[in-house]
Design a protein around this nucleic acid. Structure first.
Lengths: 312, 312
DNA sequence: TTGTACGCGTTATCAC
DNA sequence: GTGATAACGCGTACAA
């Protein structure tokens, strides 16, 4: 007990005792056991995050910012990769709940009812991110993918493009962007809104292949929305390879504003998503909830904005 | 006790009891507490990994493969970001040891003696990765950065380049590559081996800026080793921007064989590092050690190999 | 200021 | 096949 006090509240023991404890700690190589502490206190001082993938630059800002903010408040971050598969997600969530983290940050909305129920039953604070809904499990920091698709369609139309297309993956969020993009284009009277779904992950190679296929089936297009910057870079390379000048003959819009977007030649027009802000806000909500403070605004739409550069 | 058996060894209870337990579990929403279990068993069923950074594509294959392999054996992965700073690393290692993970995977060698001692005293299995030394703390799966620098210098020399340069970051591993590259170039009688250290992280932008600076101070160079594929892509873009033809007037070699390397135009010559293999091997060693099985080969050099494409 | 008793939730062990 | 007991290491509550 005296050791526990000496380490956690040094002011509550005499300097002499403190010194004796410290000497013994050093001599024995004593390290407090966080599992025992967590069990006793019913607080793990740890927050779990669940991502679809760690591969690809998309969520890196978010994770880095989340980890940094949590560390500053004395929480560790535990990361799980769920893939884009609902069954795997559910299993991983249940494993995570067993560890009794002080909070769970999810990248994306929870799809399966099983996972949703497990989270609700656990009474652990949850922040969903990187998407938007009016009915989150608990808290939410994100943006609307449908709004992005519509905005880009509007942007291309405003620039005079009447034959547009989208190159995209086919996960749920990508589908929301695609549907909104197609719908807005149609509403604006764009002559054609080709849609090409790559099955591969969002790589530069997929972008090249995507644009190549697109230019064969619909050579009349003058504007393309690529639903990640990697895809956009691939499309840019393929366009240059085929002798189509960007932006004169083909306008390209990316998504994510990865650091390379501004260094491409021409620099990529893209949609900026503020992963750093999302991570910091998610951490803030999480910590407030974990420490019993009230959360003023548990649902935050951080939005997005277009960054217009030279590829359009 | 019967519940514990029903959940962990269903064969040891009667089907009837099992059914009663399962009903109660569902009705009450019971979820086993992994902290209590870990405390009692002295096994957390968790492995911690420490990375310099999650940003950038460099370690993604490794982490993904590590997480996947561990999950298959029933271990969770906890990730910590240490930055490239020794003090921060030491602090993080001590925090991690408090959680009593079954193993610790380090990306990079441990530099500070304090961290080294803490790890040794903890008696937790440790795998260092992504580098090589003959005296690891415990186990090691990696490759020699010096050997990479020398190999690339040799490769460029064999291709007839007599004025070569390196564009690189300046962390410890980058310095090892740079020193070996310079030394081998000199030994081979290359007329000049310019060295340019970017202070920024290894981004496409840094690669562009690096090459631009280099071409001003040493326009005679015909071969450049960029110590990441992102830098190489930046150099490629800058070369094309300045009208230098690649590979005819300037040969570019990258490092990492990221997926975009093969999709650049021209496709990038690079050095392949098998992150997936390193992750899988590290997990294998870790699990064997954690479960008390002997580890035949605790120090593995997985090497690397040049992937020659069109940029040289 | 320091020390004692107890309980957090789990599982190894032994008795029934 | 099932249940009782104890112990993992910590911190709260209270006694000295």
């Amino acid at each position: 007990m005296t050791v526990s006090r000496a380490l956690n509240a040094p002011g509550k023991v005499t300097p002499e005792t403190l010194a004796r404890v410290r000497t013994a700690v050093d001599a024995l190589g004593y390290v407090p056991n966080a599992m025992a502490s967590g069990l006793r206190m019913a607080r793990a001082r740890m927050v779990a995050a669940l991502l679809p993938t760690l591969v690809g630059p998309v969520f890196q800002e978010l994770v880095e910012s989340l980890a940094e903010s949590l560390k500053r408040s004395g929480y560790q971050l535990m990361i799980g990769q769920a893939g884009y598969d609902a069954a795997q997600e559910e299993e991983l969530i249940k494993t995570i709940i067993q560890r009794r983290p002080d909070g769970i940050v999810l990248v994306g909305l929870v799809s399966s009812p099983g996972a949703r129920n497990a989270l609700l039953a656990s009474r652990i604070p949850v922040v969903e991110t990187w998407d938007f809904t009016d009915h989150p499990i608990d808290m939410l920091v994100g943006f609307s993918h449908g709004a992005i698709g519509a905005s880009v369609a509007q942007f291309l139309h405003d620039r005079g493009h009447r034959h547009v297309a989208i190159i995209t993956a086919n996960d749920a969020r990508a589908q929301a962007r695609t549907a909104a993009f197609m719908e807005r284009s149609k509403a604006l009277g764009a002559q054609s809104a080709q849609c090409f779904l790559t099955t591969a992950p969002s790589t530069v190679g997929a972008g090249r292949k995507g644009l190549a296929t697109l230019l064969q089936t619909a050579p009349e297009i003058t504007g393309v929305f690529c639903s990640s910057d990697s895809l956009a870079l691939g499309a840019l390379i393929e366009a240059q390879h085929q002798g189509r000048r960007v932006p004169q003959q083909l306008a390209i819009v990316g998504l994510g504003d990865q650091s390379f977007a501004q260094d491409a030649q021409p620099a990529l027009t893209t949609v900026r998503l503020d992963g750093t802000r999302i991570g910091a806000l998610a951490a803030e909500l999480m910590i407030a909830r974990a420490e019993g403070r009230p959360v003023a605004e548990p649902v935050v739409d951080v939005g997005f904005h277009m960054v217009v550069r030279d590829s359009t």
